[in-house]
Write a protein that binds this DNA or RNA. Sequence first.
DNA 1: ACTGTTCTTGGGAGCGCTCCCAAAACGGGG
DNA 2: CCCCGTTTTGGGAGCGCTCCCAAGAACAGT
Lengths: 339, 339
Amino acid sequence: MKPTLEEVARLAGVSRSTVSRVINEHPSVSPETRQRVWKAIQEIGYRPHSVARSLATKRTRIIGVIIPEAITKIFSDQFFAILLQGAAQATNARGYQLILSLFDDPKRQEELYAKVLKNGYVEGAVVASAPPNDPLLRALKEDRLPTVSVGKQQGLPYVDVDNYGGGRLATEHLVQLGYRRIATITGPRDHVHVQERLAGYRDVLVEHGIGFEEELVAEGGFTEAGGMAAMQRLLPNRPEAVFVQGDTMAAGVLRALRAAGLRVPDDIALVSFDDAPLASLLDPPLTTVRQPIRLLGFMAVELLLNILEGAGGSHELVLPAELVVRGSCGAIRQNGGGR
Amino acid sequence: MKPTLEEVARLAGVSRSTVSRVINEHPSVSPETRQRVWKAIQEIGYRPHSVARSLATKRTRIIGVIIPEAITKIFSDQFFAILLQGAAQATNARGYQLILSLFDDPKRQEELYAKVLKNGYVEGAVVASAPPNDPLLRALKEDRLPTVSVGKQQGLPYVDVDNYGGGRLATEHLVQLGYRRIATITGPRDHVHVQERLAGYRDVLVEHGIGFEEELVAEGGFTEAGGMAAMQRLLPNRPEAVFVQGDTMAAGVLRALRAAGLRVPDDIALVSFDDAPLASLLDPPLTTVRQPIRLLGFMAVELLLNILEGAGGSHELVLPAELVVRGSCGAIRQNGGGR
DNA sequence: ACTGTTCTTGGGAGCGCTCCCAAAACGGGG
DNA sequence: CCCCGTTTTGGGAGCGCTCCCAAGAACAGT
């Protein structure tokens, strides 16, 4: 039986209010009373009861981080692992706790959403970007649970990387290296960030008078197998370079090119997106648009906590993308190997 | 202001006990009373208040999953991402929730441990295997919080893969393929599972009369850079094959061999450990001992919940390892390419 | 119709804390 | 010594639910 605040009060010869004041560092307690109470606390090993405190204060200081099935399936494990690291870091820094809701069964998601959202522990939620029309988002809006989306979502505060700018960076880099016939492999075309990356790619081509050709665009579904298949479909159109919207698809692209006897970057240059840990482990290591996943996680939690604590400021945050130049684009070799 | 159970009672013309009975599906409620209560619940949008319920029942149905800094640093992101998927699946299946404690600051770990362990929400914890003498484990034992370790730990219930058996599988496979001069690259030698995998490797060599040579053993620290450096140290000793205790190190091994102009598996065969998603994405895809990480996570939570619910059964679970044969060992080519 | 048993329902109290209001104590000035 | 203002401390009540015990209703048998 764990000691309670009342037992501390009895032992210290004060009231429960005084003990509560000591624990919560209320200024109006005399030094000797304070000392006596701490002594009693240590003597019986008292620890505050978070559930009782939450009931009394109507605060839990717990947030939810929700990763729907659509995310664990399409994106690599790496994405949400790093996202969680950032989210956890921000949570720890603000003295909150993080309930993780990781779903992998598309059939039970709505039932599990309800269990997570309607539990009373979670004061607000960060949701990894879901596909459009995800029932989770509708449920969140209905419940009016304060929510921040990772990835742009209509009607919700969000954090996102500059997908359009990243698409431009990748394409611009390839153009500056002298490539003209540049293909691209996308994720599912109905996802907003996929559309934005594609728009960045197209605009850069048009700005350089190269022109946009639909036959140089293939959809790869963010999987390795999808990347491989998409590259195989593109090869007959003889691209000089390819911008791939995800590192995992790029791994498939590498495999397809190897199977076709083509060397990267000698025969075809490659720039991808994400800068997941995989990117540097592949051979050649990928030139890639870094999606600051950890920072995305961190800022999403920061934004949520600011909303919960009634702080002002914007409810939309777009982080700049940056290009990480490695071997797969050929820039290093063309520049004499310097880096 | 959210509706309470008392408001439902008022609207339905019953007492709070009757409403509580309906919500909790207590049998002793007449059908028409039950219907009237549900109608009232739906009419005012009542949802049970988990915090109040937890205070009254002294149960939260929340468990902690703790990933210390030593794990996020040494092991790849992939390890705990997949572990979390398994843990989350088991948690969801049993109607519990999962507070994730992901630490990445070695200096603040003990402070954060205290915050997580001593919060009153968490009924028990799953802890990813920590290095020996991790202060977290000492804190857990002191608090007598029911704990299950992922990875063998003295004095704690645990789940683990059969590391010794896995070390044997990998080495036996290389021996059966005809290799005699087999090197090995380990993680930190003070970790129990590293010692066990090394013991499996050694015993198989000795059983085949090959003999164990310390000059064929290098420590790689479970990082890509460490794997690369370890392989570079081993090359002068002219191994025919290498057993690498982790896929991420194997990526580094591949890079080191490529830099030395050696082809896998033509010039040197490779078997690794983990079967992380990376394993199939590398070129050649890794033959690897599958560590069933997702199942480890799942079973760790199952074991914890069984302990919390007072079920009987063993407090130690060792899962068998299995070998996944891909390209890096040369078995496929030697067998005529069939698979 | 009465009695005994079973089923349904109500309400007091408690889970462990916080907070508000009031009482008590203390200190300073006249 | 008294009075007034400030500081320290105490305890009642409530946060929203569960649960236990008791009361009332319903049913069955004599």
